[in-house]
């Protein structure tokens, strides 16, 4: 008899989702796929498990890596068959990132996203709502570039602690 508590095969959807906390976002390795809000559900039928995943950015190269890692993690936990089902609707939003995930991003040096609801189309020449610096908390920051090391992040700099930082853009 396998015991989920010692790493045996998960028996319920909640246990499967818990097991997926070992799968990190390859581009932001402090946050796992559950905290990222892309795991939409799971069903277990004996040795077969189906996980529903909603992709983040349309062109995100991490999507395929994440799918492979989910498969690997669940096979390692004793499943014979792992089905990763892509769910396109409703579309993923950064609003689904869990509060603990946001705090991990901030500690890692990435300012977490604000609400995705409204994005001002032109900020040039207008006082933009500053993104707080993840290092010192100051709001005396400016956006240096709309696109950073990945499509989901922009580049900012802090005028208080003079550090550059990235911001996970609201989407």
């Amino acid at each position: 008899m396998v015991d989920a508590a010692v790493g045996g095969r998960p028996q319920t959807a909640a246990e499967v989702i818990d097991a997926l906390r070992s799968v990190k976002d390859p581009e932001v390795p402090v946050i796992d796929v559950v905290e990222l809000g892309i795991v939409r559900g799971a069903t277990v039928e004996g040795g077969r498990v189906t996980v529903s995943v909603t992709p983040t950015y349309s062109g995100c190269p991490a999507t395929q890596v994440i799918e492979r890692e989910i498969r690997r993690a669940l096979v390692a936990r004793g499943f014979e068959e792992v089905v990763v089902n892509t769910v396109l609707f409703p579309a993923w939003t950064t609003d689904w990132i869990a509060p603990e995930g946001r705090e991990k991003l901030r500690v890692y040096g990435i300012a977490p996203p604000g609400p995705a609801a409204e994005l001002e189309l032109v900020q040039l020449g207008r006082p933009a709502k500053a993104v707080p610096c993840p290092w010192c908390g100051s709001s005396n920051t400016t956006r240096e570039s709309e696109f950073g090391s990945t499509a989901c992040k922009s580049i900012h700099s802090c005028h208080s602690c003079h550090q550059p930082f990235e911001h996970f853009k609201p989407l």
């Binding site: 609707f89 409703p90 579309a91 032109v122 900020q123 040039l124």
Partner: peptide
């Protein structure tokens, strides 16, 4: 069409960043 709605909704959000970026350059 659900899948199309989902794809379009995501594209629409991504596009707003493209639009903002291009708009600001056009002004500059």
């Amino acid at each position: 069409h659900e899948d199309l709605k989902g794809i379009a909704a995501k594209a629409h959000k991504e596009n707003r960043y493209h639009l903002r970026h291009a708009s600001e350059w056009v002004i500059r």
